[in-house]
Design a protein around this nucleic acid. Structure first.
Lengths: 216, 216, 216, 216
DNA sequence: TATGAATGAGTCTTCATTCAT
DNA sequence: GATGAATGAAGACTCATTCAT
C-alpha cells in the first residue's frame, strides 16, 4: 500500500501486482476527487510516483484503466450486498436493512460510489459510455431487481413490475447518497435522522399501505 | 430578471448588452446540445459570429461565462415555478405538478443542473465551484421547503418538520434526475412512465395515506 | 519569403497567406531532406520560427499539410512539362527533349522531385497512400501516357499499349533521377554524358529500330 | 558466409551465436512483413521470445541490428547471383535472367533494398547512413559492371564503356524497383508483364540491334 | 473596438533504451 | 547472463487565453 522508498531516483520494483494496485487506488482517489475528465494520466502517474509510460505497461490505455477502476467500485458494492441473501427479503424490515447497506456503502466508500454512479466520462453527448462500465452497472442493478421481484411476488408492494420499481428505488436511494456526497457543506438535518426518514419515505412509497393488513 | 451585468471587467459600450446576450444564449444552447466540456470558446465565438477575443471583453474567462449561463438557466427555473404560487399548493395533484417542473428542468437543462447539484468542489485543483451557482441551487431548494411547509401546516403530510421533509423530497427527485443524466445509456424503463411512477412513489411516501381521510 | 523580424518575441503577422507559404516551403525542404516520417510538426514549426499550434490554423493536420506539399511538387513538374505540347511529340528528337525536361526538373528541383516520387509516407505496409497524393501522381503520369500514345499511334514505337510503355518509360527516367539524387557521392560518370546515354538507351529500347526506315 | 560477429559490445557466451541468429532471422522476417519503421524492438524481442534488454547484449542499438539485417539480405542477393557465373553471361537471355534476379531481390526484400539504394543520408539529423549498408550496395553495383564488361568485350552491346553502360543499366533497373516499392498503390500494369517488358526495353536499348548480325 | 494570428501548457500515447536485481 | 520494471524524450494535436494592430 505504502510505496517502499529506495535510495535511487528510480522507483523500486512494484513487486508483483502491487504497483498495479497502487495505480488503481490512486486513480480511484483522483477520479473521485476531481472528476473523470479532469484527471490526466500524468496526474495519476504523479500521484503514484512513477512515470507516465509505466501506466501503459499495466493498462492498455486510459479507458482501460478507467474501466477497471469502475468495475472494482461495483465489485466492492457487490461484496457488501451479496451476504444479504435474497431469501431474507421477506418484508419491510428486511427491505430497510437492505437499503441501509446501500446507503452506508455510498457514505463509507465515497470514492467507489462516485466512480460507480456519479462520475460521467463522456466528453460530448454523442460519445457512448464504455460498455464495460455499463455492464458492471447492469449487474449491480440486477440485484435490486431480484430483491424487489421477490417482494412483488409476495404481493407486498404496490402494483408495478419489478424493473420499474427497482429503478425507482435505485433513484430514491441514489438521490440521498449522491447529494450527501456532492454537497457536504449543505446544512443537512441530522444525518442519521435524515437517512432513517428517507428510507421510511421510500418504504411508504413502495410498500402496500400498512393498513391493508389490519383492515377488515 | 436577475441582474446579470457589472461582473465583467469591461462592458462594451456599443448597442447595449445585445452582444452579451447573444453570447449567453449561444453558449446555453451549445452547452445543452453538446455538454459543457465539449464546447470550446472557439465554438461559442463561432456560433455568435464573432472572434474569440470578444468573449473576453464580455466575460473574464470561460468559467465566468459558464457561471452566468448557469444562473440564467436557474432564473428560467424560477420563471417556470413562479406562476405556481405557494397558495396553490393545496394537495397531491399540485405537489406532483410542482415536482414535475423540477424534473423537467433538470432533464432539459442538464448542464445547468449538473453544475448546480452534481459537480463537486474540486479538491485537488483549487478552482472551487462558483459560489453564484451554489447560491442558485440553494434558492431552488428553498422553494421545496416553502411548499412543503405549506403542506405540513395543512396536515397533509406524514409527520415531520418541513426541513426534513424537504431534504428527503429533494433527494428523491434529485436521484431520478441525476441518474438519468449521468447514466444515459442505462436501459431505463420508458422515461415518461418512470417519472410518473417515481413521483407517485414520492407522493405516497410523503403524503398521509389517502385512505385515512376518506375511509368510512 | 524572408520572415520580417519584429522586436517582440512573438512572430509578426504572416500578412495574408505568406505565413502559409512559409510553412509549405519549410515543410518541403524538411521532408525532402530528412524523409517524410522523420519530420515532426515541431520540426516544421521550429523551421518557420512559429509555434506548433499555428500549423493547425493553416492546415487541418499533418496529413493535410503533407498532401498539399506533395500536390505542389507535382504541379511544379506540371508547369515544366505543359508548355511542351503533345502535338510536338513527333519523333525521337522530340521524345528526347521531353525526357530531358523530366530529368532536368528532378535534378533542379530535388525537393519537389523527392516529394513527388521518392518519399514514402506509410508507417506500416498496410497503410495506404493518401488518396490525394495518389491522385496528383496519376494526373502527372497521364502526361506520359498521352505523349507516348501519340507516338504509338504513329507507329513509331515498338509494339505495346501506351500505358505499359508509359510506365516503363517513367521507371527508366525515374531510376536515373532518383539514383543521382539519393547517391550523390557515388562515382558517377560525367553527368551530362550519363544523361545523354541513358536517354538514348531508353529511346533505343522504346522506338522501332531505326533501320526499319532505310531498309528496302 | 560473411562474418557477422565481433561488432556487438558483448558477445553472449552461451550456446554459440544461436541466439544472435534467431534475432537476426526474426528481425528480417518482421521487417519484411511490416516494414522497418513499423517494427519496434519490443516486437522483435517478443518474436524471439526474449526480453528487450537481451537485444542490447547482442547489438549495440536498433540501427546496428538494422544494418546487420541488411547486410544479411544482401549476402542473400550475393548467393542468388553467384551460381550465375560471369562466364555464363553470353547473350541476351542470360542478361535478362541476371536482371530479373536483381528486380526480384528488390521486390522481395524491400527494406534491404530501400536501405541500400533509396534512403539518403539525413542532412538534418546527423545519423549518417550506415557505411556497411552503402558498401553492400556498391558491391552489388560491381556485379553489374563486371557482367556488362564481359558483354562489351564480346561486342554484343551498343558502343560505350562498361562503366557508363553499367550505370545506365543500374538506373534502368532501379527505376522500376524503386517506383514499385515507393508507389505501391499506383495502378500499375500487371506486374509480371511490366517487369518483362521493362527488361526487354532495357535489353533493346543496351544490346546491338539483333537484326544487324543475322541480316542477310 | 474588434480581430487575425499567435502561444504555452496541456492531452494521450509510443519508443528506444537502461537500471538494478 | 537474463529480465521485470522503469524512464526521458518525443509523437500529433487541442485548448483557453492574449498580443498587437
Amino acid at each position: 500500500m505504502i510505496p517502499v522508498e529506495g535510495r535511487s531516483t528510480r522507483k523500486p520494483r512494484g513487486r508483483g501486482n502491487e504497483r498495479r494496485e497502487e495505480i488503481l487506488n490512486a486513480a480511484l482517489r483522483l477520479f473521485s476527487q476531481s472528476g473523470v475528465t479532469a484527471v490526466s494520466t500524468r496526474d495519476i502517474a504523479g500521484a503514484v510516483g512513477i512515470s507516465q509510460p509505466v501506466l501503459y505497461t499495466h493498462f492498455r490505455n486510459r479507458d482501460d484503466l478507467l474501466a477497471e477502476v469502475t468495475e472494482r467500485a461495483f465489485s466492492e458494492l457487490e461484496q457488501r450486498v451479496s451476504p444479504f441473501s435474497i431469501d431474507a427479503m421477506t418484508g419491510r424490515a428486511a427491505f430497510l436493512r437492505f437499503c441501509r447497506i446501500y446507503v452506508d456503502f455510498g457514505l463509507e466508500q465515497p470514492d467507489a460510489y462516485r466512480m460507480a454512479f456519479m462520475l460521467e466520462k463522456r466528453k460530448s453527448r454523442l460519445e457512448a459510455l464504455d460498455p464495460r462500465i455499463l455492464a458492471a452497472g447492469l449487474k449491480t442493478f440486477q440485484r435490486f431487481e431480484e430483491r424487489l421481484a421477490r417482494l412483488v411476488s409476495r404481493g407486498l408492494t404496490r402494483p408495478g413490475d419489478a424493473r420499474l420499481l427497482a429503478q425507482t428505488l435505485w433513484a430514491g436511494l441514489h438521490g440521498l447518497v449522491s447529494l450527501l456526497l456532492a454537497r457536504q457543506d449543505f446544512p443537512w438535518a441530522d444525518r442519521e435522522t435524515l437517512i432513517t426518514r428517507h428510507l421510511d419515505m421510500l418504504a411508504d412509497g413502495l410498500f402496500q399501505p400498512e393498513d391493508v393488513t389490519p383492515r377488515r
